[in-house]
Amino acid sequence: MSELIQFLFSGVTVGAVYALVALGFTIIYNASDVVNFAQGEFVMLGGMITWFAHEAGLPLPLAALIAIVLTSALGVAMNKLAIEPARGAPVVSLIIITIGASIFIQGTAQLVFGKQIHTFPAFSGDTPIHVGGATILPQSLWMIAGALAVFLALWLFFSRTLLGRAVMATANNRLAAQLVGINTNFVMTLSFALSAAIGALGGVLATPVTLTAYGVGIGFALKGFAGAMLGGMGNPKGALLGGFLIGLIEALTAGYLSSQYKDAVAFVVILLVLFFLPQGLFGRKTTDRV
């Protein structure tokens, strides 16, 4: 029993990061139909900038805030400089643009922050909490709470606020949204700012547990992408669930089957789900217009 609890703890800890990345994917996808493969770099920057500012002597909360604001600004810049000019480009071009952005950010981070691995202190100490013979770090609770809070905020935003509905309207039909007076450019900018901020928040919360280095982004991006697709791209509920599911599948496979093939099992599950539900668990249905 205590083993199972430990596996679940491991799964939700990792899953929380994947969920935060997947949520970031969702927002941008909703506003622009773009899957931003540089999402993982936002996580990396969140951790790296916080470490850098903290090392420079700033208190941790301030350092984290700076990291989130700077990353958010970078998200906006990316939208203005790379995504908006490419509007209407085919999916494969957009994939290459965002992967190009990811490689560019990685290369820059390597020059600015160096190649070393970094970390900063956990928010509430390193003493594990014991539950039923298993242990979880206080920082893991921060991560899980972060993922849930972001989800809740997004859900409220998309369903209860005018602006949030404007984003959804833009997602469904850009032209129609423009016709009813929605400033779709602003919606795009906003979604990149939000998405980058969420990614950075993920980095801030996760770094005391996972550590960070300039190259960690692509791994998070792939797992988050997988989580978002599993849940159904564009749906915050799907992203949250998909992220946690991938984390849990990995941990349970490692615990009960084979640690060698834990990533493989995650992808087999995705393939199976997509086979029966080609839009993922909660994806929106689309029809082809002639």
Binding site: A82, A89, G100, Q106, Q110
Partner: peptide
């Protein structure tokens, strides 16, 4: 040192300006 930066930049620029 700049290889990654240049590669990423080239990928973005070509896709934006030479679709």
């Amino acid at each position: 040192e700049y290889e990654q930066m240049v590669l990423g930049l080239v990928m973005m620029l070509v896709m934006i300006f030479l679709r």
